[in-house]
Structure formats: C-alpha cells, structure tokens
C-alpha cells in the first residue's frame, strides 16, 4: 500500500510533477503505436517507484494510456527503490538491463515485468511524421520527418563517435588515464608484491620463533 508519507513533498506539487510527466508520456505514446500496443499487453500490471533522495513516490499503472498515481493502495506487481543517482545510472548505462539487476536499486516483485518495460523504453521509436503532417500536410510532413530521422541518426552516430574519440584522446594522446592493459599489469604486479610481502612476513615470524626456542 502506498499512502502519502510525512516527509514527502507537498501532495499538490507531487501531483503537478506526476501529472506533467504523465501528460508528456501519453502525448509521446500517441506517436509510438507499437509501444502503445505492447503496453496494452501489460495492462493491469503496476510498478511502484520510490526515489528516496529527494523523496518522490509514484505508481505507474501500465496500460495503452499509462497513469502515474501519487497514491495507490493495491499491491504493485513490482517495486523499485533507490536514490535519484541510482535511477540515472541505470538510465544512462550502456546495458540498462544489466545495470538494473546489478545496480544499487532495490527491486521487489516481478523482475521480468521491469525488464519488459525497460526494453519498451529502450526501443521507443517515435513517429515524428504524424504530428508534423497533421499541421503541415502529408508531403511536407514526410520530408520534414525524413530530415528529422536522418538528423537523429546522425546525432546518435556522432555521439558514439565522440565518445570513442574522447576516450581515445584521454587515454592515448593526453595520457590522463592509463590504458586498461597497463592498469591490469599494474594490478598484477601489485598482487605479486603483496604475495611476496606475505611470504616474507611469514618467514620472519618463523625465524623469530626458531630464535626464541633455541
């Protein structure tokens, strides 16, 4: 059961935040028919989300038209709890599914449902043409939509290329951080040194014992 707690933000503010997110979500889903159909299959399920720092609690009711509730008194199908930074870490991870399972977020209930929703979010593909065509007509809408798709594809490629080049520059050119192989060598040497020290210590102890007994 999720009832408003004392340390939560003002209910009116919470309702405003959740209402704005819900409206944006519903509007976006208008242009993602595939995701909407998938969400419809999950209808009847709910996910309780609790952010502890800052405190924000909501239950996402899955349906073709999803709802975000600040109060939900039934048992949610799954729940997920953690700091805002933990949520952001999962959202920005290279593989969010693995980050979700291995991260610091506390997960209860139907984990498969969480993974299904996470996949839906990752595969969200908005049809930009539909809203533009409604305003500008089919032909112009198609052209702008094509341009936008190309722009987003370019943006995605540029981001990946930039990430790769930046990491190469930091490691190889500026040498601000050592490359992974060098780091592994360093850690191996450190391990060997530790083992030698341990052996040396044991030997010293043995010699000390022998000397005191003789």
């Amino acid at each position: 059961m999720v009832a408003p707690s004392e340390n939560q933000i003002d209910p009116a503010l919470q309702v405003a935040i959740l209402g704005a997110i819900e409206t944006a979500l519903v509007q976006a889903l208008q242009y993602a028919p595939q995701t909407r159909a998938e969400l419809n299959k999950l209808s009847g399920n709910s996910i309780h989300i609790r952010v502890v720092q800052p405190v924000l609690e909501t239950t996402l009711l899955l349906a073709e038209r999803p709802q975000l509730r600040s109060v939900y008194e039934d048992k949610a199908s799954a729940s997920i709890e953690g700091k805002l930074s933990d949520f952001l870490q999962v959202a920005t991870a290279e593989d969010p599914a693995i980050a979700l399972i291995n991260g610091d977020l506390k997960i209860r209930g139907d984990t498969r449902l969480l993974q299904q929703v996470q996949t839906l979010v990752a595969e969200l593909d908005l049809d930009w043409e539909a809203p533009i065509s409604a305003v500008a007509g089919d032909v112009i809408g198609h052209q702008i939509g094509k341009g936008l798709r190309a722009f987003f594809r370019w943006g995605q490629h540029s981001r990946l290329a930039l990430e790769r080049q930046l990491s190469e520059y930091i490691v190889e050119e500026a040498r601000l951080t050592p490359p992974p192989l060098e780091l592994e060598d360093f850690y191996r040497d450190l391990r060997h040194l530790q083992q030698r020290l341990d052996r040396c210590e044991a030997r010293l102890k043995r010699l000390k014992r022998e000397r005191s007994s003789s």
Partner: peptide, 15 residues
Amino acid sequence: GIHRLWKRFTIELSG
C-alpha cells in the same frame, strides 16, 4: 489553476 491539483489528489486518495 491549483484547485485542479487539489482535486486530483482527492480523487487518488478516494480509492
């Protein structure tokens, strides 16, 4: 316009 938020919370809490 905040009265809409107060009413929305009322509906949620009504169960």
